[in-house]
Nucleic acid binder design. Structure first.
Lengths: 212, 212
DNA sequence: AGCTAACCTGACCAGCCGGTCATGTTGTGC
DNA sequence: GCACAACATGACCGGCTGGTCAGGTTAGCT
């Protein structure tokens, strides 16, 4: 699942190196995006390049492992919020956490926003996140806090959009995303709203490679 | 301004090749994004790689020329809409055109959304677009069609955000952006809205290269 | 302590990139 | 139709990338 099987019965130095590697990769992808080289990741971890490829067969696998970690964290946040008292506040907190996570990690944005570089497991994790977000959204919907035809997938997609809106300002105003989150939330619960155009999305489609 | 000076007194085949090159580059950047290679652009144009570098000193220059073209087109659309009767409809049409342009061009999204790859001229053109958008927004604001503290730069930034929201659906629902445009427009003119958090942006900041 | 398999290492490879330049070709003014 | 400058060409360069592997090192068991 996560690169080369990480089962028990491994040498102590190997599990230590694995921790170093995952830490370095997480930081490197966050700062530099998916384009960061395996060489740089190895260097940050204080390991040789070959060692990195011993733990993960390819760059794609390593990236997927890191992304799954981030997605799982977000999903469990959503899970927890499912039991909150105030459904509207819970949805707001979920979106805040989500946009914050995107703002702090370049690779996360790139992977979530571009279907073409999604590992199957990553897509599955995103779809799972959409499911939990749907539950969260449904509760807010029942309480009249969001308009009728907004789905959990809408909410998840909005995370990427909100962050992207603020991205060009990130260096100058690191919190600018709050502005656009508020704007989106206002749009999400306008009282007497007409139905939104286009089909409400349920899951993310599989990516079909371009022609040409 | 646009690569090697494109003044008069040039050989006929050169101006023809230049047209071919610009056409190929426009299509290539739109389909494949900024990562497309100069070799592929040359091939599409039916030219040798060296010829491409005779017309534009670097890939960055070529990209900037294409992006300036797109930005100019959008800016003149906004300029035209400045004289429309219905200010609210004009703003909506501007945003529709903008998001449509982004949805049709990968490189456009990447350049507009990531300050780090902005040529100085491109940033200037974006700022100019923000100015015109501000005029457009001001008119809508006076008529009560958008809330008080929304600037033209907000509107321009929203174009990128709206497109990004729909981007993962692009293959399956090419028009999905209309859904999120409507949502944003609803958010933009909620009647009794409180002030948005964070400073309203005026211009895009210059990009400061990362540390590390 | 000694042995072995598991593990780490870094030189190495092929492939791609942006960019250059000596050479060949061609439009154009006379 | 000639001559020359302007232009096109594609082989070539250095640098970077993801990925491989023969050989050295070491953890852990006996």
């Amino acid at each position: 699942m996560t690169g080369t099987a990480a089962g028990a019965g491994q040498r102590a130095d190997m599990v230590r190196n694995r921790r170093l590697l995952l830490g370095a990769a997480t930081a490197a992808f966050a700062e530099r995006g998916v384009e960061v080289s395996m060489g740089e990741i190895a260097q940050r971890a204080g390991l040789a390049k070959g060692t990195v490829f011993r733990h993960f067969a390819s760059k794609e696998d390593l990236l997927a492992a890191i992304m799954l970690q981030l997605l799982d964290r977000l999903t469990s946040t959503a899970d927890r919020l499912l039991h909150a008292d105030d459904a509207a506040a819970a949805l707001r907190e979920f979106m805040t956490t989500g946009v914050e996570a995107l703002a702090a990690d370049r690779a996360f944005c790139e992977v979530v926003g571009r279907p073409s570089l999604q590992h199957p497991e990553v897509r599955a994790a995103i779809n799972h996140l959409c499911d939990v977000a749907e539950a969260l959204t449904a509760r807010a919907r029942e309480r009249g806090a969001v308009r009728d035809d907004v789905t959990g997938t809408d909410v998840v997609l909005l995370l990427g959009g909100i962050h992207q809106t603020a991205a060009p300002l990130l260096a100058a105003q690191p919190q600018a995303w709050r502005r656009y989150l508020e704007l989106a939330l206002d749009g999400l619960h306008v009282p007497n709203a007409g139905a939104l155009p286009e089909q409400p999305p349920c899951r993310l489609p599989r990516h079909v490679p371009e022609s040409t």
